[in-house]
């Protein structure tokens, strides 16, 4: 399969990249890892006039924790960097759990977290994780930078709110105010398939009481689902068998799965409930170990 013809540019700076996007006037696409864009070009689901390859821009391949606990992921940080990240293993269990189950190991060597968020596939794993974490995207355009919460970043399937001359340069996870816990579970038919169901949970607690909770659901709706009711139900108390079961029920109710070749709607709801309970049971265990 061959993509349609396009002009290729490989800028060396953010400013140059943004200028190219401006000149492209909405007919340019940004190429980072290319693990979604190149297949779309080949299938001609995307036929941009220009491809702006940002891989030659230095200084975007980082991920780090600021002294206050804020986590920052640059636009060229690959899934594999996050999978092997000591930083995530020490500081961010939800992301650490998700990184190894993105796509397959070879795709993870190229694909990027920021690119995945921009691609805005309702089946994308990172969107659920970032929604659970209350994360945001830093976009840079001709007039400077702005921060966009991931929850507001996606307009619809494969559509984000970036202006045509804006480039997503970083994903940000805000500094936690309590002890961080959480996880990500994904059911897939085989490695590399899209999620049948994915559940991301991010918690912060203080003396065993949950002070912040976020739950994101992958693959069970036309867009990534922010299971607000289920998350709210966890806040203000400790995790108990009752509160965990309740959160599982609320998340399953919040899901909007459709019956397809990956399973029936009923089955998918059941998996949502099971995964919520399983992740939270795991959190209880790790909190007990820590105490």
């Amino acid at each position: 399969m061959y993509p349609s013809r396009f002009r290729y540019e490989a800028p060396r700076s953010l400013e140059e990249a943004i200028e190219l996007l401006r000149l492209g006037g909405g007919e340019a696409k940004v190429l980072a890892g290319g693990q979604s864009l190149v297949p779309m070009l080949k299938l001609r689901f995307a036929s941009p006039e220009m491809v702006v390859d940002i891989n030659n821009i230095a200084g975007l391949d980082y991920h780090r924790v600021d002294p206050d606990g804020t986590i920052r992921i640059g636009a060229l940080c690959r899934h594999a960097d996050l999978e092997n990240s000591a930083i995530l293993h020490a500081h961010q269990p939800t992301m650490a759990a998700a990184a190894p189950v993105i796509a397959d190991p070879i795709v993870r060597n190229r694909g990027t977290l920021v690119g995945s968020l921009c691609h805005a596939d309702p089946q994308g794993d990172w969107a659920s994780v970032m929604i659970a974490l209350g994360g945001s995207i830093i976009a840079q355009g001709p007039n400077g930078r702005r921060s966009i919460p991931v929850a507001d970043f996606v307009k619809g399937p494969f559509q984000n709110v970036l202006a045509f001359d804006e480039l997503a340069i970083e994903a940000v996870v805000p500094a936690p105010k309590g002890v961080v816990n959480g996880g990500y579970l994904k059911l897939e038919r085989r490695v590399g398939d899209f999620a049948t169901v994915g559940v991301a949970i991010a918690l912060e607690s203080s003396s065993g009481v949950i002070i912040r909770a976020g739950i994101g659901l992958t693959g069970v709706g036309g867009t990534t689902i922010n299971a607000i009711e289920a998350a709210k139900a966890l806040i203000g108390g400790p995790l108990t068998a009752e509160s965990i079961a309740n959160a599982g029920d609320l998340a399953a109710q919040g899901a909007q799965p459709r019956t397809d070749h990956r399973g029936s709607a009923t089955y998918k709801r059941h998996i949502v409930r099971t995964f919520v309970v399983r992740i939270l049971d795991g959190v209880v265990e790790s909190m007990e170990r820590a105490a």
Partner: peptide, 18 residues
């Protein structure tokens, strides 16, 4: 799959110019 700077990548999913 080929090794790109030592790491496996899918060469059907990378442009030659890259």
């Amino acid at each position: 799959t080929v090794l790109f700077d030592g790491k496996p990548i899918k060469s059907c999913t990378m442009l030659a110019v890259q």
